[in-house]
């Protein structure tokens, strides 16, 4: 067991270090949320005036949404790295060694979670700068971050599963493009739920992105309903667990195919 933990630590270190050696990636992942926050914040500023929107300032409303969206999108692409490792023979090299099998996926997910936390904090601070208010305080910010990271871990696991099964970058790109944006728009990242068409509201009920946004916003409210926050968090934890299980199954399929 300790062997699983130390191996996961080593693999996490490896992924983190490799990430830091890609300055382009760091730049893009920092600039993208800024652009989203400023662009969408300006574009949709007036929609809070629509009767029934239920929020005072759009930037207050949008910031938690961008936190969740950022974690979702970085996680969606995490399978690309695994495809590259398989193509280069890195995975096979570790499979021939005593390295714990779980660490080969877990290291990626832990790295994703750390990156997710850093990104969340950056966006929250950025929101503050452009005038967002978080009445829920530190507890609310923590709840938002936990939910966004749970979502990211689950989606990251799914992305790894797709990567290891398809083993093609093209498939990965197609699936991510096809899924990530609709998933975002089928949640209240940009638009209050009450103003969505009825069928979208029903779909959003089962959308993990909506769970995360919903819980994050609730946590940041002036008097949060912690029941809502914790229940969404529970579903997200379950979602993450199921996705991680699927990823380990997918990895076994790969091992059998060698």
């Amino acid at each position: 067991m300790t062997h699983v933990l130390t191996d996961t630590l080593f693999m996490t270190q490896r992924h983190f270090r490799n990430l830091l050696r890609q300055p382009a990636w760091i730049l893009i992942s920092l600039v993208q949320p800024v652009v989203w926050l400023l662009l969408y914040g300006a574009l949709f500023r007036k929609i809070v005036e629509i009767p029934g929107f239920g929020a005072g300032s759009y930037i207050d409303f949008l910031t938690p949404g961008i936190v969740v969206m950022t974690c979702l999108f970085s996680a969606g692409w995490s399978g690309m790295d695994l495809i590259e490792d398989i193509d280069r023979g890195v995975i096979d090299r570790f499979l021939v060694s005593p390295a714990s099998r779980s660490s080969l996926i877990a290291g990626r997910l832990v790295q994703g979670a750390i990156v997710g936390i850093i990104q969340s904090v950056i966006i929250v601070v950025l929101g503050l700068i452009v005038g967002a208010e978080y009445p829920g305080g530190v507890a609310g910010i923590a709840a938002l971050t936990i939910c966004a990271v749970l979502l990211g871990t689950g989606v990251g696991a799914l992305s790894n599963a797709i990567g290891v099964l398809s083993r093609r970058v093209e498939t990965m790109v197609a699936v991510s493009n096809f899924v990530l944006l609709p998933l975002t728009f089928l949640s209240s990242v940009f638009m209050a739920r009450a103003l969505m068409p009825g069928w979208m509201q029903s779909v959003a009920t089962y959308n993990p992105v909506e769970w995360a946004v919903n819980a994050g916003r609730e946590g940041l409210a002036s008097s949060p309903d912690w029941g809502v926050v914790l229940s969404r968090m529970g579903w997200l934890a379950l979602f993450t667990l199921v996705c991680t299980w699927l990823a380990t199954r997918a990895f076994r399929v790969y091992q059998k195919s060698i």
């Binding site: 280069r88 023979g89 096979d92 021939v96 060694s97």
Partner: peptide, 16 residues
């Protein structure tokens, strides 16, 4: 696995 070393046909090095 503990007793062997393996250099596969496909390198398997971490290029980064």
């Amino acid at each position: 696995r503990l007793a062997i070393g393996c250099v596969a046909q496909k390198s398997g090095l971490d290029l980064q």
